[in-house]
Design a protein around this nucleic acid. Structure first.
Length: 480
RNA sequence: CGGGGUGUGGCGCAGCUGGCUAGCGCGCUUGCUUUGGGAGCAAGAGGUCGUCGGUUCGAAUCCGUCCACCCCGACCA
């Protein structure tokens, strides 16, 4: 239960986050270091995320499949950058059936290699392309420092893997899926994100180009919330994905991969949550409306429950996700706090006075206290609730966007950049050299987050670090 | 892996420079009264004090070891 108050966000953001995840019953620590147990409430949220994404994947022509958890060690070694990137964090299986294995198996940290191997078997002709497969699953990366949802040794995600006949098609696919992520994050998660390209040092191990949706958390740190990679022919060459093109020539395929994980739950928590707990966007919330019936005695209870059940049925039939909190052992006030901790976007109170007046009370989670409470007629309750949920959804996005924009700065010089990245993002010209990027990271802890696809100036400028000519601007920020 | 912190009923903690039968709040169980912003009273249940070792007549308390977790840094979605 959520009996105790949270550490205030402003006092210690990290502690606030940890307590919230536990008290809202999203997840719990597991007996294995770095792993987490996703509790039913957290998993239902994930299921809603899955549905929202899966629908979009299907609409863009993708199909789901499942590839194995275990991958031969040698597969990882076939792509040089890939193995260099992932070998430090691999979990390796050395024994099976009581015998030492001839070749160790790695627990997948991502599935490019085994999928590449399979694609080489399936692709012979340009007519076999494109292959547009997604998989929902779990992966393991042995992280040094873990945090529930944000970075766990095992996490749940989806990984899309596509193979194409041309570079242009693969590059289009990369951006198409980045746009799918952005659309999902903004419209369903109410998490404003910036689409952009990762620097060479920040890109995926083995990619030609990595793209990202970057979000700003409530402490102004950046969170990479989803990624889409153009892999060129790197994996095709490593796994021999070759096809005969229309000119009867043998050619390597062009591949992409893209993923979004349970980390996004962390993004939702840190984008919208407040000192009273979680705030969930209505489109993803496991429970969109909680109804709290209020009564003093059996007579009142009978009258109140009659209205409650009628309204519950109406909302249920309308397809809304809702719950009646009919617990007898706690008071209404307790229930308010309890559901606020869990982030339910809208609370409906039905008491004797409402029965008299044909009304109900609606309390918005995103507007605390009396300000967020209104009394509405029981007539047209479905429409009223729907409209209110939509208002909340939009308000969350607007608030998060305003917060983000207020904390993005355009420093005049390097000294000012060092200041602003301590509590916000810097948007600055950058010459795209590793040296300047490394210098900023070394001196400020802020890394380049992305070169945004939009909002680039038409004129070149001067690198904020070294003063050399720079074509594009980049975001610098501390990140998770 | 470096620095810091914490391990005492389910949860949060107190227990001082060595002492009595290990306490408090919350939660839990039962009963009655309550219920529009975290209810009240009464009676109960529940603990090898993280581990191993040492000092001592006597250790939750002192010393050492190990383990786990959290926070802050070096790698990463």
């Amino acid at each position: 239960m959520s009996e105790d108050k949270l550490t205030p966000r402003s006092e210690n953001f990290s502690e606030w986050y940890n307590e919230l995840v536990l008290k809202a019953e999203l997840a719990d620590y597991s007996p294995v270091r770095g792993c987490m147990v996703v509790r039913p409430y957290g998993w239902t949220l994930w299921e809603n995320i899955q549905q929202a994404l899966d629908r979009r994947f299907k609409e863009t022509g993708h199909v789901n499949a499942a590839f194995p958890l275990l991958i031969p060690m040698s597969f990882l070694e076939k792509e040089r950058e890939h193995v260099e990137g992932f070998s430090p964090e691999l979990a390796v299986v050395t024994h099976g059936g009581g015998e030492k294995l001839e070749e160790p198996l790695v627990v997948r940290p991502t599935s490019e290699t085994i999928i590449g191997y399979m694609y080489s078997k399936w692709v012979k002709s340009w007519r076999d392309l494109p292959i547009l497969i997604n998989q929902w699953g779990n992966v393991v990366r042995w992280e040094m420092r873990t945090k529930l949802f944000l970075r766990t040794a095992e996490f749940y995600w989806q990984e899309g893997h596509t193979a194409h006949a041309t570079e242009q098609e693969a590059r289009e696919e990369t951006l198409r899926m980045l746009n799918v992520y952005a659309d999902f994050a903004i419209n369903d998660g109410a998490v404003p994100v910036i689409r952009g390209i990762k620097s060479e040092t920040e890109k995926f191990a083995g990619a030609v180009m990595s793209t990202t949706i970057e979000a700003m958390m409530g402490d102004t740190k950046a969170l990479q919330s989803g990624t889409s990679h153009y892999l060129g022919q790197n994996f095709a060459k490593a796994f021999d994905i070759q096809f005969t093109n229309r000119n009867n020539e043998l050619e390597y395929a062009y591949t992409t991969s893209w993923g979004l994980s349970t980390r996004f739950i962390g993004a939702i928590i840190m984008t919208h949550g407040d000192d009273k707990g979680l705030i969930l966007p209505p489109r993803l919330a496991p429970i969109q409306v909680v109804i709290v019936p209020i009564y003093k005695n059996v007579e009142e209870k009978a009258r109140v429950m009659e209205v409650t059940e009628r309204i519950f049925a109406q909302l249920k039939d309308a397809g809304l996700r809702l719950k009646v909190d009919d617990r007898e052992e706690v008071t209404p006030g307790y229930k308010y706090n309890d559901w606020e901790m869990r982030g339910v976007p809208l609370r409906m109170e039905i008491g004797p006075k409402d029965v008299e007046k044909n009304s109900v009370a609606l309390a918005r989670r995103d507007v605390p206290g009396k300000e967020g409470k209104t009394f509405v007629s029981q007539e047209n309750i479905v429409e009223t609730v729907r409209a209110m949920l939509e208002t909340i959804q939009q308000a969350l996005l607007a608030r998060a966007t305003a917060f983000r924009d207020a904390n993005i700065h355009e420093p005049r010089d390097y000294e000012e950049l060092k200041q602003v990245v301590q509590n916000g993002w810097a948007f600055s010209y950058w010459c795209e050299s590793r040296e300047c990027e490394a210098k900023v990271k070394e001196e400020t802890k802020a890394s380049t987050r992305c070169i945004p696809l939009e909002g680039q100036p038409s004129e070149p400028g001067r690198c904020i670090v070294c003063g050399a000519e720079a074509k594009r601007k980049v975001y610098f920020a501390k990140s998770y």
